[in-house]
Design a protein around this nucleic acid. Structure first.
Length: 510
RNA sequence: GGCCCGUUCGUCUAUCGGCUAGGACGUUAGGUUUUCAUCCUAGAAAGAGGGGUUCGAUUCCCCUACGGGCUACCA
């Protein structure tokens, strides 16, 4: 039978890496088994809905390149209320579910008196405690049903062992006495997660349910619903949770807001996330790579995978049982590795998209480079700097000194106010200036010249690398950046001359 | 508190009873690079504790401890 899996987020906020990981594993499982991957929006709680988050989820998955909405791969629970109504009728008619009229206040009071109160076989028929199909007289019941102010609960039996198989964890045994008669249909007529989930998974033909570990405890409830309908259960895989970077507790929405663990920014009346992983410069393929390896491994030492490689290599056997802490530094490293594999034109695409999202395409250093240096030289620059990227944010830093004349705030790193030091620096700057006037720049030529300068510096009691430092300082404004000779060649004679003069006048005023 | 799940370097993990416990991130020390980044080499760093089973347990079983999840008319 063809496999079919689903990713079923609720639109209550941004997609953060926990949800992302579940989505990715579902996707990989579908790919590996040649099955289908569908999205289901679980929006049965109208109160917690955050406007914009459904669109947000769609965008995130599209950005990751693992899902695009079509007619046959998308479902929304709020559109299916009639379906749930139809199925709940069956459960009522056959005695698997019943009406209950206890208000939330009533139940609160009961729990206040008895901390260990459970709404199940132990209390269901207690007339002094609860109001439901079992405790009310027929007439009373019919009257109350007219008010529409009731919930429908699942009827659980006493003293049963419920054994459910999880593909990762094996058989898990629950005692029905520990369960409660969970609400299936809420007072507002909407189904709860438990009910909608089972009905949907069955009617959609889901073969394997892959979801987070937080659902293990409601597994027996779901199992009982399948049993009541006499439906076959799908296979279950409960993925370990992603822990907060400290390793304590699962990653929460709070972390998403504070730590940038969501995909995009999201602004709504309920939350304001300013920066997502995308804005922080992550590549989608790197994020997928990193998240897949958080709780899964290919039983070898390979760390860097393309999406295609993951699709081929993924298997259930490599899935981990214990929770894994989110390690931002390792994500950065994975991101860097992916950048190294990018071509120049890919880098340009990534940057353009990044800057468009960030600044609405204003202040694009890529555009600026092309204006100042032309396509060919721009490509040359990118090929030289891309090795150095950890995130796409590095683009601006690496390129800035090609675009703007440097300020010399950091000149004291090389040139001190000591007369001796200052005077040799001035001599060297003079030499460089003269050289730039007279010589034509070629790589070999510059090398020879720098070697001569080095000798000169040493003769004057300075370090041999001082000329390089001064030259770099003049061009870059700091002791950083790509190979000096490359910088000289890219900037060209005129630019170099200007910057040398500029540094010259700067230190004269020391 | 109850129920369920889990437990190998700081972190992610390998090991399917033979271990001098391997790799990766991070970290430390060197080296390459005129600089920064990269890169290279080396180092420190772990099977929670106690019982079994076994010739032999990180590996299998039990107990304890610790961590996590759930305990809503939220998902």
């Amino acid at each position: 039978m063809k496999e079919k899996v689903r990713f079923a987020p609720s639109p209550t906020g941004p997609l953060h890496i926990g949800g992302l990981k579940t989505a990715i594993i579902n996707y990989l499982y579908a790919k590996k088994t040649n099955g289908d991957f569908v999205l289901r929006i679980e929006d049965t709680d109208q109160n917690r809905k955050v406007i914009g988050s459904e669109e947000y989820i769609l965008q995130s998955l599209k950005w990751l390149n693992i899902y695009e909405k079509k007619d046959d791969n998308f479902i929304k629970q709020s559109d299916r209320v009639d379906v749930y109504k139809k199925y709940i009728t069956y459960l009522i008619d056959y005695g698997y579910a019943y009406y209950a009229f206890d208000s939330e206040e009533d139940l609160g009071k009961i729990k206040e008196k008895n901390k260990y109160f459970k709404y199940n076989s132990s209390s269901r028929e207690n007339k002094n405690l609860v109001k439901n199909s079992y405790t009310l007289k027929k007439k009373e019941l019919e009257e109350l049903l007219k008010t529409d102010s009731y919930v429908i609960r699942l009827k659980t039996n006493a003293d049963e062992n419920i054994i459910v198989k999880d593909l990762l964890r094996g058989n898990i045994t629950f005692s029905s006495n520990e369960l409660e008669d969970k609400v299936l249909i809420k007072k507002d007529g909407m189904p709860t997660y438990h009910f909608a989930n089972v009905v949907d998974d069955y009617t959609m033909g889901i073969t394997t349910v892959i979801r987070g570990e937080e659902w293990v405890s409601s597994l027996p409830i779901h199992f009982l619903i399948y049993q009541a309908f006499n439906w076959p259960t799908p296979k279950f895989i409960h993925l370990p949770l992603i822990l907060s970077p400290s390793g304590k507790g699962k990653l929460s929405k709070r972390h998403a807001e504070e730590g940038g663990f969501s995909v995009f920014p999201l602004k709504s009346e309920k939350m304001n996330i300013k920066e997502g992983l995308k804005e922080s410069g992550m590549l989608p393929e790197a994020l997928i790579n990193f998240l897949s390896l958080l709780g899964w491994n290919a039983k070898n030492d390979k760390e860097i995978f393309s999406l295609g490689e993951l699709e081929k290599t993924f298997n259930i056997e490599g899935l981990q049982k214990q929770g894994a802490a989110f390690d931002y530094k390792k994500l950065l490293w994975v991101n860097q590795q992916h950048f190294k594999q990018k071509s120049v034109s890919q880098i340009k695409d990534v940057y353009s998209e990044y800057i468009l999202r960030k600044k609405g395409n204003k202040e694009s250093y890529l555009d600026e480079l092309i204006i100042q240096y032309g396509e060919e030289k721009t490509d040359k620059i990118i090929s030289l700097i891309k090795e150095r990227f950890v995130t796409i944010k590095n683009f601006d830093d690496e390129v800035e000194y090609f675009i703007k004349s440097p300020t010399y705030e950091n000149s004291n790193k090389v040139i001190t106010k000591h007369d001796e030091n200052k005077s040799i620096c001035i001599i060297l700057l003079d030499k460089i200036s003269y050289y730039l006037e007279t010589e034509k720049l070629t790589s070999v030529d510059i090398k020879t010249f720098l070697f001569e300068l080095s000798t000169l510096a040493k003769e004057n009691g300075a370090k041999g690398f001082l000329p390089m430092q001064i030259f770099r300082l003049a061009l870059v404004g700091d002791l950083k950046g790509i190979d000096l000779i490359e910088i000289i060649l890219i900037l060209g004679q005129e630019n170099c001359k200007k910057r040398i003069e500029s540094l010259y006048s700067h230190i004269k005023n020391y």
